[in-house]
């Protein structure tokens, strides 16, 4: 049973993102800000830090693919960006220490990188025509604040879960 804990946790994060945009009061969305949850990315980055980079990249690939098929219908974007950012993050972590504060700040940086990277791709394939300054004002900053709040709430439970999983792996 315990073997399915991690996939179940990530499946929950995957659905939570969609639930979040469904249930958040419409007034928050109807104002001139766009909030995009990136809970899955935060989960993958914490997994990379506390379990292993290999796990992070594999989960990034699987859930990136699911994300693309189910939510964007453009296969390739998140499939590429999730593992790529997990890889960069793993290299950063190797240099720095795995202090929970450092991991949290770096996760937020990873999410910012994901946002900007996806924005550039969307601009390239003409899904959006926002200019960069408007984008930063109405989307990037509110999104980062939202995800920072999520990271603050979830950092400690994530750390505990993934360290437990890492212990289990070592014992097996």
């Amino acid at each position: 049973m315990i073997r399915f804990l991690l996939p179940a946790l990530f499946a929950f994060l995957f659905i939570l993102e969609s639930l979040f945009v469904e249930l958040i009061p419409a007034e928050l969305f109807n104002s001139d800000r766009i909030l995009a949850p990136h809970f899955l990315m935060a989960g993958i980055l914490f997994l990379t830090a506390y379990l292993s980079p290999k796990h992070g990249i594999i989960y990034g690939l699987i859930f990136g693919f699911l994300f693309d098929v189910v939510y964007t219908e453009i296969i390739g974007i998140y499939l590429f960006v999730f593992p790529f950012i997990a890889y960069l993050f793993a290299n950063m972590i190797r240099v720095l220490q795995t202090n929970i504060l450092v991991v949290s700040i770096l996760s937020l940086a990873g999410i910012a990188l994901l946002e900007i990277g996806v924005y550039q791709l969307m601009l390239l394939i003409k899904i959006t025509d926002l200019d960069f300054s408007t984008y930063v004002k109405i989307r990037l900053v509110p999104t980062l604040i939202l995800n920072l709040a999520f990271i603050i709430l979830a950092a400690y439970p994530f750390k505990k879960q993934f360290e437990k999983a890492s212990d289990r792996l070592r014992n097996d």
């Binding site: 659905i15 993102e17 969609s18 979040f20 945009v21 469904e22 766009i34 909030l35 995009a36 949850p37 994300f67 189910v70 939510y71 964007t72 219908e73 453009i74 998140y78 996806v118 924005y119 969307m122 899904i127 959006t128």
Partner: peptide
């Protein structure tokens, strides 16, 4: 009935 909404919010699906 709606059962999901795209959370990335570029493509509104």
């Amino acid at each position: 009935v709606r059962i999901a909404r795209s959370p990335e919010r570029w493509n509104e699906l």
